[in-house]
Design a protein around this nucleic acid. Structure first.
Lengths: 259, 259
DNA sequence: CTTGGGTACTGGTCTGACCAGTAACTGGAA
DNA sequence: TTCCAGTTACTGGTCAGACCAGTACCCAAG
């Protein structure tokens, strides 16, 4: 006969669970209002401090939002990737994930996004991508490397969005954000950086051409090479080795204009 | 001249930020202890309720752990993918990500993991994979579909771990977990399920052979087909179309024993 | 050296209070 | 009738002080 460990659920945990499951079951939808803390305290028959701890947890996990003074009470939030961002950057930072691993993971995501985008993006998607590309190219021509990261971020985000897969899109956005965050301190010399930025802008044009021509493999390969070359100088030998095959494959594909 | 919006940080938020940044700066490492709540309340010169709300947030984001009665105070936790899991399943559930999207994303992750594992897993990794495969095959032979999901989960987790990329590993684990979670209710008939399970066990053997033979593309393709076929019946036509090209490519690769 | 209480603490919860801030109501001006 | 400003009744944020059940640790008895 097997016994199960007793599990004592604290009061605030129970409240969190009840509200969470109400949201999961769809009884509470984004925009809906929770009662005020004083009402909740009566409903759950606990003190206000306990209610507040539960609400804090729900707020920390991005499930609800509240503003002081608002008589309408806390609101169920629209989904936002904030928590995913936090947990990803936590993973990358605390778990000591190396820059090489981060880049490798990003290459996987970005190349997949390009592949999918080239295969089945809509005309609207394509227009959005081309607009971002124009802004990027113009910004590089006018301001050089200055506002590059902002524009290239938007350009690549448009591609991820065009992939049609929101998991891929959001995860890609997060990883890309974490990367620029973590590597922003390691800026190369201005001249070097400008050269990278110019090459990246050219790659953007090739990439859009490949997407427009519906050449998935080629689009993916261009993006892999583009991102890799942009960060390659920051890697050490070992990290570069781990990426070598991906890169080699990409170079081969890009080498052949139409395969 | 540009003004910046004033941002009023509440007391508990300020506490959270201070402790978080102490961890990020490495001043607090996993296992280290925070002072008790009464000490913290004096240090930050706030009331205990405020300290507790801050600690609740830190606990919800997985940064600290505490047990009632422990005179040593709360402890900085070892990293755990709990938060990532939570945010991923939140994304999949709340954002209304379709099963097709989820599967597509998983195929991307799993095939990449197989690719990397086949390319550069260590002998230890390989041994671990083969052990999981043996357990899986034996379980299917003895108990049929009964404990399949548990064993196949461990088998695939071993492959992800062998990929050498922890981001890929953890993300893959999470997505796979979310998927089994979300689809566990949709069980097919027993006979049908048994057939799927048997085919999956055979694929596992082929997959390990490909990894052992260091055939990355082949390994990736086998896994794509394996997972796709396992879930294909649950998809509708539209969802299947979105995956078609991935599958077609995989079938081609698997078709050629050594390419 | 082990072991069983005792003790001094912990975190979880409660009560009751004050404050700054917001939404909505109200009534008078246009 | 429309519009604006002051009022009001609430909100969430914070504080103080208290009690309880539970834990780690110490120390004395075996």
């Amino acid at each position: 006969m097997a016994f199960t460990p007793v599990q004592k659920v604290s009061a605030y945990e129970s409240i969190v669970e009840q509200i969470e499951s109400a949201v999961e079951r769809g009884e509470l939808k984004p925009g809906d209002r929770l009662p005020g803390e004083r009402k909740l305290m009566a409903d759950f028959s606990v003190s206000r401090a306990t209610v507040r701890e539960a609400l804090r947890v729900l707020q920390a996990t991005g499930l609800i939002e509240s503003r002081p003074g608002d008589p309408r009470g806390a609101a169920i939030s629209q989904y936002s990737p904030r928590l995913l961002e936090k947990s990803m950057s936590q993973l990358a930072r605390l778990e000591g994930v190396s820059r090489g691993e981060l880049l490798q993971f990003r290459l996987i995501l970005e190349s997949s996004a390009c592949l999918l985008a080239a295969r089945d993006c809509t005309d609207d998607d394509l227009r959005a991508i081309e607009q971002r590309r124009d802004e990027l190219v113009r910004s590089v021509a006018e301001h050089g490397a200055e506002r590059f990261s902002e524009h290239v971020g938007r350009f690549q985000a448009a591609i991820r969005s065009a992939s049609g897969n929101r998991l891929l899109e959001i995860t890609g956005n997060v990883v890309s954000g974490v990367m620029t965050d973590l590597l922003s301190s390691r800026l190369s010399t201005d001249a070097d950086r400008l050269a990278r930025v110019r090459r990246s802008a050219e790659d953007a044009e090739r990439l859009v051409a490949a997407i427009r021509a519906r050449e998935p493999e080629r689009a993916a390969a261009i993006q892999v090479l583009n991102i890799y070359r942009f960060y390659a100088d920051d890697l050490d030998g070992h990290e570069r080795d781990a990426l070598a095959p991906l890169i080699a494959g990409a170079e081969e594909t890009v080498g052949s204009p139409i395969d």
